[in-house]
């Protein structure tokens, strides 16, 4: 067993977990944050993507013990009260989701992509989404949503600053 202390969505948490516990298991089963999903067992689908210290990471690929002391943000931590993060808003406005299962990972990845690029074109977004699989949307509207959010985020919004 290991004691893990970390901040999740701004809240300090401490848990004793089995050493083999994955971060995604800690989030979903120990903390009840079921918005982070598991879609595969080979680190390919990206449904489990969260932010660790500001970077998108597949939480099925990290042991909970490895993120001791880190700051983790999950899909549940994005919205500021009733006001959605621009990436969330863009996914809704552009119909960037159908079944919603890949969506949390896509949104977390989308934010990371925008943060790493000063300007984004369709080709770059598609390349950057390599590690996130969606079976429903054909990516068409996901790409559109990320592009739109990038434009919104460039303007600078409070919810970005809060992250």
């Amino acid at each position: 067993m290991s004691e893990v202390k970390l901040t999740v969505n701004g809240r300090a948490v401490t848990r004793d977990v089995e050493d083999r516990t994955l971060l995604v298991t800690l989030l979903r089963e120990h903390l009840g944050l079921t918005g982070t999903h598991v879609g595969c067992d080979t680190s390919q689908c990206g449904a489990c993507t969260v932010h660790i210290d500001g970077h998108a990471v597949k939480s099925c690929t990290v042991l909970a013990a490895q993120v001791d002391g880190s700051e983790v943000v999950t899909i549940e931590g994005l919205a500021d009260g009733a006001s959605l993060h621009p990436m969330q808003e863009a996914f809704r406005t552009h119909h960037g989701l159908q079944c919603g299962f890949c969506t949390p990972g896509m949104i977390m990845m989308g934010i990371d992509i925008v943060q790493r690029h000063s300007s984004l074109d369709e080709e770059t977004i598609r390349k950057e989404l390599e590690g996130n699989i969606c079976r429903c949307t054909g990516y068409h509207n996901i790409v559109k949503a990320i592009k739109a959010a990038a434009d919104d985020m460039a303007v600078g919004t409070p919810s970005m600053a809060a992250e």
């Binding site: 899909i75 549940e76 919205a79 809704r92 919603g100 969506t103």
Partner: peptide
């Protein structure tokens, strides 16, 4: 339905 999916509340 999107509100719950984009906020992790599905």
């Amino acid at each position: 339905e999107d509100q719950r999916f984009i906020t992790g509340k599905g």
